[in-house]
Computed example of a mutant assay.
Amino acid sequence: MKKYLFILFAFIIAAGCSNNDSSSNSSTSASVKTTVLMYIVGTDYEVPENAKVFFQNSYNAGIKQDALGYGPANYMIKGMIENINHENTNIIIQTSSKENNMKWTDSEISAAGADPEKFYIKDWSQAARWQIKNTGIEKIQDLGNVCINQGDTNCINIASGDTIGDFLTYGIQNYQADRYIVIFFSHAGGTIVGFGSGATLPEMQKAFNKAKTATNKEFDIIGFAACLMGTAEWMHYLSDYGKYYVASEESEFEFPWLLGDITKAIAQNKTTEQLLETITSTYYQYSARNGSVSTNISAVDLKQVKALGSALDRLSNKIAEDYVSNPAKTFNNLYVAFSRANSYGKGQVGLYDL
Results as ranks from 00 to 15, higher is better:
Thr213Cys: 10
Thr271Leu: 01
Asp115Thr: 12
Leu334Lys: 03
Glu273Gly: 06
Ala30Gln: 09
Lys103Trp: 09
Leu302His: 02
Gln65Glu: 15
Gly161Ala: 10
Lys118Asn: 12
Thr280Pro: 00
Ile137Tyr: 05
Met1Gln: 07
Ala127Cys: 07
Asn134Glu: 11
Gly151Tyr: 13
Ser58Arg: 13
Ile262Lys: 03
Asp166Gln: 10
Ser107Gln: 15
Lys118Ile: 08
Thr43Tyr: 03
Leu354Cys: 04
Ile297His: 05
Ser339Gly: 12
Met102Leu: 12
Gly144Thr: 10
Phe253Leu: 12
Thr215Ile: 06
Asn85Pro: 12
Ser22Met: 08
Lys118Val: 07
Phe224Gln: 01
Thr330Lys: 00
Thr89Met: 10
Trp104His: 11
Phe119Ser: 05
Asn317Ile: 07
Glu87Arg: 08
Phe54His: 14
Asn296Gly: 01
Phe167Cys: 07
Lys3Met: 08
Ala51Thr: 11
Ala341His: 00
Ser325Lys: 09
Lys103Ile: 13
Ile12Met: 04
Asp178Arg: 04
Val324Gln: 10
Ala311Val: 10
Val53Arg: 14
Thr330Met: 01
Asn149Val: 09
Val36Ser: 02
Lys264Tyr: 14
Arg129Asp: 08
Gln304Arg: 14
Ile63Ser: 14
Phe184Gln: 05
Ser197Ala: 14
Lys139His: 02
Tyr245Trp: 06
Ser125Thr: 15
Tyr45Gly: 10
Ser292Gly: 04
Gln141Pro: 02
Ile319Ala: 02
Glu108Asp: 02
Glu49Ala: 15
Val293Asn: 14
Leu168Val: 05
Asp66Arg: 09
Gly309Leu: 08
Tyr70Gln: 13
Thr28Phe: 15
Ala111Pro: 11
Ser251Trp: 08
Asp115Cys: 13
Glu254Asn: 14
Tyr237His: 10
Asn149Lys: 11
Gly260Tyr: 07
Asn157Cys: 04
Ile183Cys: 00
Asn157Lys: 14
Asp353His: 06
Asp301Arg: 13
Ile77Asn: 01
Gly196Val: 08
Asp115Phe: 14
Pro256Leu: 00
Ala15Val: 03
Gly190Glu: 01
Asn19Lys: 08
Phe195Ile: 05
Asn101Gln: 15
Lys3Cys: 01
Tyr283Leu: 00
Ile156Asn: 10
Tyr45Ala: 15
Gly161His: 02
Glu46Ser: 11
Asn83Cys: 04
Tyr45Gln: 12
Ser97Thr: 15
Asn20Val: 09
Lys270Asp: 05
Ile109Gln: 12
Gly144His: 08
Ile266Tyr: 11
Lys243Ser: 11
Gln126Asn: 13
Asp162Ser: 15
Glu82Ala: 14
Gly189Glu: 01
Ala337Leu: 07
Asn90Phe: 13
Thr231Trp: 02
Ser248Met: 03
Thr280Gln: 01
Thr34Cys: 08
Phe6Gln: 03
Ala114Leu: 14
Asp178Cys: 06
Gln285Val: 04
Met204Leu: 14
Tyr4Trp: 06
Tyr170Pro: 02
Tyr175Ala: 00
Gln348Pro: 01
Gln205Ala: 13
Val246Gln: 07
Leu312Arg: 10
Gly165Ile: 04
Ile156Ser: 13
Asp142Trp: 00
